[in-house]
């Protein structure tokens, strides 16, 4: 059954403005993305339990509605990590630049309570550890896109 191995690639992205969900997250994330242009990181704080979400989220497990924007730092702590092996995963990059393993870190930015994932650059797999300190690597001219948050570096 060879047809199963055929893959069709279609050029294009997934522009979020084309989605018509009634999804409050989009409005919140747009605000956070917009702030990235000025190299500002905006988290959203829950009035009920004090949890600071980054990325922002329109509802909380305590049933309150997070509504207080707080500026958070671009430094943080690695809570977990992984790196890729020699494995081609369909549709998902399995290598970093120049054939090096891609290091994916779960980080909690200072002043926030939720984990976000990021690619660690300027480091080898053996350098990364839980608890290590990192800083987001801002592009020279952030464009207010998710890509602005793509990389972090050891602090």
């Amino acid at each position: 059954m060879e047809y199963k191995n055929e893959t069709v690639s279609i050029e294009g992205g997934w522009p979020m403005e084309h989605w018509q969900w009634k999804f409050e997250s989009l409005a919140l994330i747009r605000k956070t993305l917009e702030a990235l242009r000025e190299k500002k990181l905006l988290g959203l704080k829950c009035p009920g339990c004090g949890l600071v979400y980054f990325m922002p989220k329109p509802y909380c497990r305590c049933l309150s509605i997070p509504d207080e924007w707080v500026e958070v730092k671009d430094t943080g702590t690695v809570t977990t990590y992984t790196f890729t092996g020699a494995w081609a995963y369909e549709g998902i990059a399995d290598e970093g630049p120049a054939g090096t393993p891609l290091i994916i870190v779960g980080i909690v930015l200072d002043g926030t309570d939720t984990m976000t994932v990021c690619t660690l650059s300027d480091a080898k797999p053996e350098d990364v550890s839980v608890g290590m300190r990192i800083r987001l690597q801002w592009p020279e001219n952030p464009e207010g896109k998710l890509e602005d948050l793509a990389y972090c570096v050891p602090l």
């Binding site: 977990t80 994916i104 994932v117």
Partner: peptide, 16 residues
């Protein structure tokens, strides 16, 4: 972001 899938997310769980 394209970083997470079932395996990479579980790898983060494993390491934690």
């Amino acid at each position: 972001r394209g970083l997470l899938n079932e395996v990479s997310a579980s790898a983060l769980q494993a390491r934690a």
